[in-house]
């Protein structure tokens, strides 16, 4: 059986660009091969590159670094919403958030939600891509049908979800009723959670589908043919030959999907809970919004957003340091 997990091109020749930023030079005792001098663009005036970079740097500073610093500062204060008084409370905001049972419950749900949404939307996206890749007759019709959903904006998806699961008119509620189950989205915690996960997955599958499909089509026919000769089982062939070659796409999608589940599902959740968090399952980012914008608790909400920032930072580091090592950009 051919082992395609080690492709012909040496990994050292084309290391992941992002990986280089995260790999400390100290861990590599032998001097890394310096990039070819021909690739380096020389500017006559040393200021010129900075001028080119300036717009991007200004955008990052104004919309990312500055607010981040503000969030970190506010998180140590309990502040009057109008900005008249602020009491320095040290790490109390963090202690209040992390110590609250409600916050822990929301964090737990967020983890579960992220895992399920990521797993299902990646899995289904891959399944559809593999199946659509094999279709020859009417392939563009299938593909368009699968991709079309991506054009729906998250709040609209949420609105559709809200109607599909409405207690009075929702077809899914009627459907569950045929099986003798009284579905109560908006009252029963897990009914609402299932509806949210379903809608969030449905919204994200087309995105994954597009990338997996183009990834599959990027696999050379020669490799596929070689794989057919080496192993007859379709599934084994997929697992040992196709999947490793799809790994860079899958890795990229994993990061995008985790970010989607953590942050971009906000609109879906906001619409589905109808502005009433009540006993509905929420994600951490919704809680930040709810406490900060609706509750006007700026300090507490800032502390939660810093916690969220740290979570994302840690997740990203883990992904790049451990997971990406197993991905080959062949």
């Amino acid at each position: 059986m051919s082992d395609l997990t080690h492709p012909v091109t040496s990994p050292a020749a084309r290391p992941g660009r992002i990986r280089r930023w995260f790999t400390r030079p100290a861990t590599a005792p032998s001097p890394a091969p310096s990039p070819a001098p021909a690739k380096r663009v020389q500017f006559d005036a040393p200021l010129l590159p900075w001028i080119f970079l300036a717009p991007q740097l200004v955008v990052i500073f104004v919309f990312f670094y500055w607010p981040s610093v503000q969030a970190v500062t506010s998180s140590f204060y309990i502040e009057d919403p109008f900005g008249f008084g602020a009491t320095f409370v040290g790490i109390d905001n963090y202690r209040d958030a992390l110590g609250s049972r409600e916050y822990q419950r929301i964090a737990g749900f967020t983890a579960l939600f992220t895992v399920l949404v990521t797993a299902f939307s990646l899995g289904l996206g891959l399944l559809f891509a593999v199946k659509a890749d094999k279709v020859i007759r009417g392939r563009s019709a299938y593909r368009t049908a699968l991709i079309a959903v991506y054009a729906i904006a998250p709040p609209v998806a949420g609105l559709m979800g809200m109607m599909l699961f409405d207690q009075h008119i929702g077809p899914f509620v009627t459907l569950a009723g045929w099986f003798g189950y009284e579905m109560k989205v908006g009252i029963n915690y897990w009914d609402t959670a299932s509806a949210m996960i379903l809608i969030s997955v449905w919204k994200q599958v087309p995105y994954n589908f597009i990338f997996f499909l183009s990834g599959l089509q990027g696999i050379p026919a020669s490799v596929r043919e070689a794989a057919v000769i080496d192993c007859r089982g379709g599934f084994t062939r997929f697992r040992t030959a196709i999947l490793p070659l799809l790994a860079p796409t899958a890795f990229f999608l994993l990061i995008i999907n985790i970010t989607y589940a953590l942050f971009d599902t906000f609109a879906v959740i906001d619409v589905m809970v109808k502005d009433k968090p009540a006993n509905n399952p929420l994600t951490l980012v919704y809680k930040v919004y709810n406490d900060g914008f609706r509750g006007n608790d700026i300090g507490g909400s800032a502390a939660q957003s810093v916690i969220l920032m740290v979570i994302v930072l840690v997740l990203t580091l883990i992904q790049f340091r451990w997971l990406e090592r197993r991905v080959h950009y062949g």
Partner: peptide, 19 residues
């Protein structure tokens, strides 16, 4: 103070009572 947030807690607990 922070009564909008207290209402959120009430709503959550009322839901729990009826479920």
């Amino acid at each position: 103070g922070f009564y909008p947030q207290i209402r959120v807690i009430e709503e959550r607990e009322f839901n729990k009572i009826f479920s």
